[in-house]
Design a binder for these strands. Structure first.
Lengths: 139, 139
DNA sequence: CTTGACCCTCTAGCGACTAGAGGGTGCATA
DNA sequence: TATGCACCCTCTAGTCGCTAGAGGGTCAAG
């Protein structure tokens, strides 16, 4: 088992960019690791586990603040995980809303696009639809 | 017909914030209007039309750059509006992709949430699922 | 003449990175 | 041993589309 990792190895192992790892350290999401003689960051297995958790949570769309909360909760081993459930459900609801918004948008755009007769700008239905009250060109 | 508008009136008429209008001017999206004796911006009907166009496009999710392109195209009255169609369809496709991504995400989250037995953190399925390889707490 | 709503410019902040300048380190190879 | 190259370091600024605030000036009503 390789326990010590450079930032590049950690990046490779977790599919994160080096700059992003440094950024997570800067905002206090990932604890600062020990440094080598040449001032290189030296990561341990624990960092790998934490960063993997962060990556997976971010991939699932949780915000940085939510990830922070989730990690804080995870460290309280004996407490109820209801709070975790709450965060996950809030996030799920936010996504449901976003899908609804985008679906409505898509429908509006479809109406717009269907109306295009592919003639000149002057009688373009798309541009007309975008102008709520007869758009006049400059000059 | 009221032809002259202060920035506040224009904001009210278009449902845009005053700061946003100034921002649009700054980035060259909305042309800078004439100034009054007291250095107030003085908008005309043309500004109202352009800003309405911008608002509507933005509400439909077009990026600032896309709006810029659309407005540029709209001013070429005699040319084909095929280019407009292309932009609209690109945008429509981007939204389709976003909806697909979010739907996949929602499904993953649902699996996660269903697995929660609402016990302690130590055996929380959500946290387990987030840790791709047994998450160990700090300390 | 004062109050208060409006307007002005300029700057910094949001979230979550990303990119670049300008340098130092570490290791393999000629 | 020199050199080349990949990797690492810090610091700063940029991305997108606004939003918010400081610190002022203008204008119309009472």
């Amino acid at each position: 088992m390789s326990e010590k990792l450079t930032i590049g190895k950690l990046a490779l192992a977790t599919g994160t960019k080096v700059e992003t790892i440094r950024y997570y350290e800067q905002i206090g999401l990932l604890p600062a690791p020990a440094r080598s003689a040449g001032n290189y960051r030296t990561y341990e297995g624990e960092h790998l586990r934490r960063l993997s958790f962060i990556r997976r949570s971010r991939d699932l769309g949780f915000s940085i603040d939510q990830v922070r909360e989730l990690m804080g909760l995870a460290d309280r081993r004996e407490q109820s995980c209801m709070a975790v459930d709450v965060i996950a459900k809030q996030h799920r609801n936010a996504i449901t809303r976003k899908i609804a918004d985008l679906t409505a948008l898509a429908a509006e755009l479809d109406t717009l696009i269907d109306s295009c007769s592919r003639n000149t700008m002057a009688d373009c239905r798309i541009l007309e639809a975008l102008a709520p009250g007869a758009f006049e060109p400059a000059a």
